[in-house]
Design a protein around this nucleic acid. Structure first.
Lengths: 155, 155
DNA sequence: TCTTGACCCTAAAGCAGCTTCAGGGTGTTT
DNA sequence: AAACACCCTGAAGCTGCTTTAGGGTCAAGA
């Protein structure tokens, strides 16, 4: 099948498929000698479905590559896979905890402005003007709010 | 003060400060004619603290620009600000809901492999091989799992 | 005085996972 | 023959920085 058909079957764009090929996630397709169009078969479809399933679970391309590799090594131990998923779950949970805190802070902030009608008297702006005091367990060094290196960014 | 001092006071890197200037978040600093070094005063410090506070609340540069603008228009209505924060809270909540679902799915997935020791028999890989069936309220068109355009990506 | 080290400057590339754009061929229909 | 849908490549854009390369400035110590 041609790339457009494959894309429709999987529910992604043709650009994404070409991108996956360039990323090494998807094997390069055979080309039609007549016009250089990519030709796909059922194994490509299956692999793409696998990849998309992983992506909806917010895995990175690197993680997916590991899983794809495991997939073609039926005799290998699946310990790596289990660890990968466990670690991934931890990332998701950590991200949720961060957002939980964020939500609390934002709702607190929002509560500062219920009545005022000019920015001059807006409690929100006033509160944003002050640095963040860490409630407890503050790092002694200097108060970098770390940045968290979280990979669970989309979907 | 010089950029390094300012950076230390706020707890960010000099590169970030220069980046904020290039982004239009921070007004360009006056330059020391002798050596072209940036010179900052207290208003820059305050503005940077404001910006950082917004960033720890995961606001985008665009949102921050709107708030910075409101900050210098004391007579304007603060309705925009309230709406901005409300919408932002919604984004955070939506993101959390997504992650909640993700967590459930991942834990379900993880439970597929408790005993097996080769990838051949790994329930995780097996489950990843199948497309995602949306439990209910499926879109009729084709089953795009949307992608969610979420901006709450870090911190 | 010379050198060392800390600090400053700019411009460009890198990260992740795509999407969009520019510019151009192919293939079928009308 | 024109129109339209589809295919191709390569490069840039998105977000919020960080990193790298290459090069000046300045104060202090040998």
């Amino acid at each position: 099948m041609k790339i457009g058909v494959l894309a429709k079957q999987v529910g992604i764009t043709v650009e994404t498929i070409r991108y996956y090929e360039s990323e090494g996630l998807l094997h390069p397709a055979l080309r039609d000698p007549a016009n250089n169009y990519r030709r796909y078969d059922h194994s490509h479809l299956e692999r793409l479905i696998f990849i998309r399933r992983c992506r909806t679970l917010a895995m990175t391309h690197n993680e997916i590559k590991i899983l794809l590799q495991a997939r073609v090594e039926p005799d290998a131990s699946c310990e790596t896979i289990n660890e990968l998923i466990d670690e991934h779950i931890h990332h998701v949970q950590a991200r949720m905890a961060e957002l939980q805190i964020l939500e609390t802070q934002l709702i607190e902030l929002r509560s500062q402005c219920r009545a005022a009608h000019t920015t001059r008297d807006c409690g929100i702006l006033r509160e944003l003007d002050h640095p963040i005091e860490e409630s407890s367990e503050a790092q002694p060094e200097h108060s970098h709010v770390p940045g968290s290196q979280c990979r669970i960014e989309r979907h």
